[in-house]
Write a protein that binds this DNA or RNA. Structure first.
Length: 423
RNA sequence: GGAGAGAUGUCAGAGUGGUCGAAUGAGCCAGCUUGGAAAGCUGGUGUACUGGCAACGGUACCGAGGGUUCGAAUCCCUCUUUCUCCGCCA
């Protein structure tokens, strides 16, 4: 959520930067400023009346104590008139505040100045491409065929017990999952991230805190009976650990990581791009999250990007890094790098990670602040990234490490799997 | 799931209708003291909105939301949550 004062003081700049995200609603911005003016106005009126009422109440108390009942009664009858006015103003105020909030959450985060304009994924900027594109043997198979051939993932079985997009991993397939999770967690730990194991269901307040609500309500599974949401990413519970928290400046940077399954309804997805492991309703992911001093956040973003790249390098996967254009960026992000791995068998790039700096967009909404020894609490910057999501990594490994007789296991995983070949 | 008792500042803990943003103690910060430290003494020590160049004011906040009252941390209702007992259970 953007800060109203910033919008007010930098209206032109805000409009211009929003347009990089193809968000062109100057009237919404005007309305927000207008509502904020109304808010101030109404509040100062209410405060004034309240101040009077408080003074009168004090006076009554004093008179009563001194036994001057008649005088007290006189003051009492005067003040009771203003009661209605105060109540009306307060109701007005809370409805203005509500409306202001509703408008404010419609504004996406302002993109960083390096974010390219653009509308489609094709306009993303390739920052770096690592390694040669893999060339595969003539009879190379896509991962869903490999999965069936070696009996390590059963999509049909998942359909039977739940539905499409809920695969069953079997035998070495299941072990590969565990190995990847442990590999990612141990790399994160080496990089100084403290592991958190968090709830997989979150309440409404948490959904709002990180911005999934109200924006992406339809993308989350909802447990109606208890009004809880299944997490679409560990970002939600992990970042919400710091909701309504004032950190000490020396506690920054906060570095957390966590493994969780993720649940996404993916309403509206279809076709070949959702085949196999490409898009699932339930998948596993290790997430890294940082809360940092605003001065360092872009250095930290690079550091996180390198951490992810390092994982891909260790796995021996060819990848590229994209700086997302305004139109392809998430609602809450100021700058996002996507890491993509090339699937030779599918002849397309697969997004395997997304690393973002949210600047103060999340911390503002979360009421997450930090405080130095001097001065007021301030909003820190928050960042997060997938490090990594499993399905497409597994897909890439299966496809890019396939041989005629089976699939080689990347060396860095062998200590975690206990085997080096799937056949 | 049933019954009962709680939820107060960084922490402990007092406060059952007015002078309470809140006693007291601890912690923390600054100063004094000291060769240095400890102890001791003195002062300070929440957040948000808002007025003001500032000094300094106003308003709100005692788990959350409503209500009663001229006035609520204190009374009433709902919810959340913690503890104890019973039941159930990995």
């Amino acid at each position: 959520m953007l800060q109203v004062n910033y919008i007010r003081e930098n209206k032109e700049e805000v409009l211009e930067r929003l347009s990089v995200k193809n968000f062109n609603q100057p009237e919404l911005v005007e309305e927000i400023i207008h509502l904020d003016n109304q808010r101030k106005n109404t509040q100062s009126q209410a405060d004034e009346l309240l101040a009077k009422a408080n003074a009168a109440a004090k006076q009554i108390g004093e008179l009563m104590r001194n036994g001057k009942k008649d005088e007290a009664e006189a003051v009492k009858s005067e003040t009771s008139n203003s009661k209605e006015a105060i109540k009306t103003l307060q109701e007005e105020l809370s409805s203005i505040e509500h409306e202001l909030y509703q408008k404010l959450v419609q504004l996406p985060n302002l993109p960083h100045h390096t974010v390219p304009k653009g509308k489609t994924p094709e306009e993303n900027e390739v920052v770096l491409e690592n390694g040669e594109l893999p060339t595969l043997p003539a009879k190379a198979l896509p991962h869903w065929e490999l999965a069936a051939k070696y009996n390590i993932i059963d999509f049909e079985l998942g359909v039977k017990i739940t539905g499409a997009g809920f695969p069953v991993y079997k035998g070495k397939g299941a072990k590969m999952q565990r190995a990847l999770i442990n590999f990612f967690l141990s790399e994160a730990e080496k990089a100084g991230y403290e592991e958190m194991m968090v709830p997989l269901l979150v309440n409404e307040a948490s959904g709002f805190g990180t911005g999934q609500l109200p924006d992406k309500e339809g993308q989350m599974y909802h447990v109606g009976l208890d009004n809880l949401y299944l997490i679409p990413t560990a970002e939600v519970p992990v970042t919400n650990l710091y909701r309504d928290v004032i950190l000490k400046e020396e506690e920054l940077p906060v570095k957390n990581c966590g493994y969780t399954p993720c649940f996404r309804r993916e309403a509206g997805s279809y076709g070949a791009h959702v085949r196999g492991l490409n898009r699932l309703h339930q998948f596993d992911k290790v997430e890294i999250v940082q809360v940092v001093n605003p001065e360092t956040s872009y250095e930290v973003l690079e550091e996180m990007s390198l951490h992810v790249q390092n994982l891909l390098q260790k796995l021996g996967l060819q990848y590229r890094v994209l700086r997302l254009c305004g139109g392809d960026m998430g609602f809450t992000s100021a700058l996002t790098y996507d890491m993509e791995v090339y699937s030779a068998a599918q002849e397309r790039w697969l997004e395997v990670s997304s690393v973002s700096n949210f600047e103060t967009f999340q911390s503002n909404r979360l009421k997450l602040r930090y405080k130095g020894k001097e001065g007021k609490p301030q909003l820190p910057h928050t960042l997060n990234g997938s490090a990594l999501a499993l399905p497409r990594i597994l897909a890439s490994i299966l496809e890019n490490y396939q041989t005629e007789n089976g699939i080689k296991v990347p060396e860095c995983l062998v200590p975690f799997t206990g085997f080096d070949f799937i056949d």
